[in-house]
Nucleic acid binder design. Structure first.
Length: 157
DNA sequence: GCCAACGTTGGC
DNA sequence: GCCAACGTTGGC
């Protein structure tokens, strides 16, 4: 089975890559995803050992800030079942769960984040949803080529 | 804080 | 099934 590559958005004032570094086992449940397209990627495509870029959104400098790895396969997002959770969804039940999560583990933090501006300026990345106008997808697949292209951008001076 | 773009809901 | 209204996302 080949490795899949992803990009995960997170708002750093809610959960940043530094929060992940400080978390137990440097791991976290990627819960709270409430978008069907993103849900389907979690449920149907993500698997252990896949790699993901960690992206900071809704912040002064939106950027890819590091890499995480999927370390636990798809499981039910329990926050949807908890009335006290801000992510509670009464339409999700244990018998018929609607929302799912994976667990990701910290791998690497970039010395210098790759900013959205830089990503937008790279002609080889014009096709990725992240840089497209109005894109709101919080989990998106990347080709191996996209992944390598972005990784190479960390080696710039 | 603004607002364009998007996804979801619900009336019909 | 259409589509207007609404709530949310997220760059700026």
């Amino acid at each position: 089975m080949t490795t899949n590559y992803w990009l995960l958005k997170s708002e750093p004032h809610t959960f940043s890559i530094d929060d992940l570094i400080k978390a137990p086992n440097q791991s976290t449940r990627w819960d709270g995803v409430r978008n069907y397209q993103a849900r389907n990627y979690i449920r149907d495509k993500m698997k252990v050992n896949d790699f993901c870029f960690f992206y900071h959104s809704s912040c002064p400098v939106p950027a890819i800030v590091g890499i995480v790895e999927i370390t636990q396969p798809c499981h039910i997002d329990e926050t949807a079942l908890n009335p006290k959770s801000e992510y509670f969804d009464p339409q999700s039940t244990p018998q018929n769960p609607r929302w799912f999560q994976v667990t990701v583990t910290f791998k690497q933090k970039f010395e210098k984040p790759i900013t959205l501006t830089e990503l937008k300026n790279n002609p080889n990345l014009k096709h990725i949803p992240l840089v497209q106008r109005g894109s709101r997808l919080s989990i998106m697949p990347l080709s191996h080529q996209d992944w390598q292209c972005i990784l190479n951008m960390t080696k710039r001076t």
